[in-house]
Write a protein that binds this DNA or RNA. Structure first.
Lengths: 186, 186
DNA sequence: ACCTGAACACCGTTCAAGT
DNA sequence: ACCTGAACACCGTTCAAGT
């Protein structure tokens, strides 16, 4: 990749992060290009859709979560390690309004021919799934629970509690404990 | 209210429902007005913001959920009655993409000087809370759980599983059972 | 090969004129 | 009192011209 191309890409990502943190994920793309000091056409060349731009930002988040997940794998309490990681997922996917919704979309996206966010997303999921499997083997997670569902549920909490960390913690604790006991849970 | 005003309002709501079901909650408001056979200014006079229009549609949903909640109050199994009602909440707030997000917003909205959706929302919450309290008294819900959190968590599931009823059921079952057992749940 | 920004299209919102 | 729709503003997106 040419040096100026790489620099433009980096500037666009930095500008997008700044604009999104100020105005949310729906911020003006013209504003992003202006702040990056490039033409609007350059933004579209690098990121054909808004979701592409969002997923490029998410890729960094996913790299960090994958690393955190691998670190937690050696912690003594499997169940606690899992909830710690899920809390980190929420905290880091709520850097700006709309980021968590984009994350949930990227979780659903299974198109194989994609690199970038998709590869980072897969690595993040693998790290989380290892934590999940360990907790399940330890009896800390119901035997029939599926990791993809657990992550989706966590993403759902992130979506509705953006910018309200205390509420996110309460809802995750509620989901962890279980809302309804016994056979009533279907 | 004058007859023509009431008729315009009804036409706008029917048109909005149709457009939203086709294009989601972000559908063109000009298109809604056109379909309703009124000028765009009339739409804005009746519903100053898109959220006002969405909440008017939600008010009907909330009325239905309040009625369902009161019926379920006499069912023999308190925990099961609660989950049935929560499932209904998800099913009825996902009539079109974006409706559930709007519902979650209306749950948060506590402005007292509002009628319409707000009153219907309060009645819906009261009915749900009665079911919740009964389930808690029966020991089917953790003693320290809060209804507002349970409803918010259910809304979160609705937001990320719009148009995927099976996924919604699985996530709600997971949240009901509990993701992580014991002290690991924080 | 990449970048630029004018040009086009579309939509949200307001408000002066009309009924 | 309510309705209309032209007018304005803003933004997303493309693409011909330039480097």
């Amino acid at each position: 990749m040419r040096a100026d191309v790489r620099r433009n890409r980096a500037r666009l990502l930095a500008a997008a992060r700044e604009m999104f943190e100020r105005d949310g994920a729906g911020a003006s793309l013209e504003g992003v290009a202006r702040l990056a000091g490039v033409g609007i056409g350059t933004l579209y060349r690098h990121f054909p859709t808004r979701q592409d731009l969002l997923e490029a930002l998410l890729a960094d988040v996913y790299d960090g979560l994958a690393a955190t997940g691998r670190e937690l794998l050696v912690s003594p309490a499997p169940g606690e390690a899992l909830t710690t990681w899920l809390r980190a997922f929420i905290a880091r996917t709520t850097a700006f309004p709309g980021m968590a919704a984009s994350a949930v979309m990227s979780l659903r996206d299974e198109r194989p021919g994609r690199s970038g966010a998709s590869a980072a997303c897969r690595a993040m999921r693998d790290a989380g799934e290892a934590l999940f499997a360990r907790a399940r083997d330890a009896g800390d997670v119901p035997a029939d629970a599926v990791f993809a569902d657990a992550l989706r549920l966590t993403g759902a909490i992130a979506v509705v509690t953006e910018r309200e960390p205390e509420t996110a913690d309460r809802l995750l604790a509620l989901a962890a404990t279980g809302l309804v006991s016994g056979k009533a849970a279907h």
